[in-house]
Each structure stands twice: as C-alpha cells, then as structure tokens.
Design a protein around this nucleic acid. Structure first.
Lengths: 131, 131
DNA sequence: CTGGATCCCACACGATACTG
DNA sequence: CAGTATCGTGTGGGATCCAG
C-alpha cells in the first residue's frame, strides 16, 4: 500500500504544475464564499458584501477580479442612475460549485466529530499538564 | 432560481458557525497536500517532506499537528534506533479524500480553460493599455 | 530521524478616504 | 452604488539552530 510511486500523474506537488493554481484558488477562503453566494443567481456588489458580512470591500473587489480573470465569474454593468453591477457564475464554475457543495455538506456532517476530536486532544494535553 | 432565501441551513457565512472551521482547513494549502500525499498509505515525516518538496519542516510539523488534533490524521511512533514516526489517514478523513480527489480531477480537467481565460483577460488589458 | 524554539520579513488584509 | 488608492499592522511562513 506504500509502493515507491515517485510522482503522481497531474502531480500537484510541483509548483510549476498549473493544478496548484487551482488548488490555491480553492484555498482562498473568500473566493469559495463568493462562489457559494453566487450559486443561486446574480448578486450585486454591495449585496454580496452584506451577505458575506465579514468581508471588506477591498477583499471582495480583489476576489471578484481574480475570479473574473479565471473565467469563473462574469461581470455585467448596467448604466442605471447609480450604476448597477451584477456578478454571476459562468458555466465553467458550474461543475466546481457541485464539488464545493459536497465539501460544505461533508463539513456539516462531520463537524461534530472533528470538534469532539479537538476537545479530546486538548483535554489530553491539559491532563498531561496537570500530571 | 434566485428566490429570497435569506440564509442557508448551515450558513457558512457566520464566523460562529463551526462549518467555517472546516472551510478554513480545506483552505489550508499544505493540509490538503498532506492529506493527498497520505492517501496511498502511511508515510514517515521526512518522506512527506521530500514528496511535497516545497514545504518547510516547520509548516509540515504544524500542519500535521493540526490535522491530528482534528482527527484526520493519526501518528504512530516506533522506538527504533533513530526514532521512526508514521502518519496515516484516519477513517474520518476517508470521505474527505474522495471529495479532494474530485477537486484535483476538476482542476486537471479545467486548468486549460482557466489558463486560457487568464491569457485572454490579461491580453485584453494589455490591448487597452496600448490603445 | 523527528521535531521544538527563535528570529525576521514579506505580504495579506483591514480601515480609511477619495472618485466616477 | 461600485469601486480605487494609500497606509498601517498582524502574522503566516521560511531559515536556522538545537534537542531527544
């Protein structure tokens, strides 16, 4: 079960491998939150801000720009009186959302076990300290 | 497809929600890489280091500790002459690995489209500058 | 071999102020 | 409303040295 196996196919270990770029994007907490928020349809800038709540406008703007650059989000501006801008997922992002949903589902299903493990671990440490 | 729907069940937006903790863990680049490396069986500390390559021993140690605390990885030390330590996935991590595999698979499948989007985007910018 | 402890700095991120 | 620009800082994380 642990053969030599020098390096896997796509090999995400090599920083050169573009797969790492995607991993980094998934690793971006704000990006994931934004994608999830856009799941049910187009949302305007300040709406996104309010929905996510904790995000600063700088990070939101920055996150949206990088997501747009990656072709995961599209931007549409309407020349209304105060300008209106809508963000929505692109078809490309569709498949990713499905996976992200699985992640959040898994998280909801197992967060109990994980928190329990943390308490057990921390408790063991505390006990060791007391001993 | 875009009803009011004030807030989703688990609501990952609220920092209080423990689901966010899991998201943050997934958001940890090194943690994901470590989990993926452990997928095919137990691996020793320095083996992990070499396989991942770019990681510093500090981050590896730190990542392993937090994964162990979360009950996703288990540690086994053998009192051999130079001490030997093996890390392996716990059953709890099993389901997560499946999802992580989907992520890497998706990444491999769509990295081309994403890189193309980036080039198109950057090219458009460059053109705008030149104009 | 498996880590822990320290030093240190780049940079991610938040807060604030300003523009179209 | 939808951003951009600037500044200050907290800290993630690398490099290095040391210990069991």
């Amino acid at each position: 079960m642990s053969p030599p196996q020098p390096l896997r196919t796509g090999d995400a270990y090599n920083p050169d491998c573009p797969t790492r770029h995607i991993l980094d994007r998934i690793g971006d907490k704000w990006a994931v939150l934004v994608l999830l928020t856009l799941k049910d349809g187009p949302v305007r800038f300040n709406d996104l801000r309010r929905r996510i709540g904790a995000i600063s406008q700088k990070m939101l703007s920055q996150t949206l720009k990088s997501l747009e650059r990656d072709g995961l989000v599209s931007r549409a501006a309407f020349p209304t009186v105060p300008v209106t801008v809508e963000y929505r997922l692109t078809p490309l992002a569709g498949g990713l959302i499905g996976i992200l949903d699985q992640v959040t589902q898994w998280a909801e299903d197992h967060v109990g076990a994980i928190m329990a493990s943390r308490r057990a671990h921390d408790g063991a440490l505390t006990d060791a300290m007391a001993a």
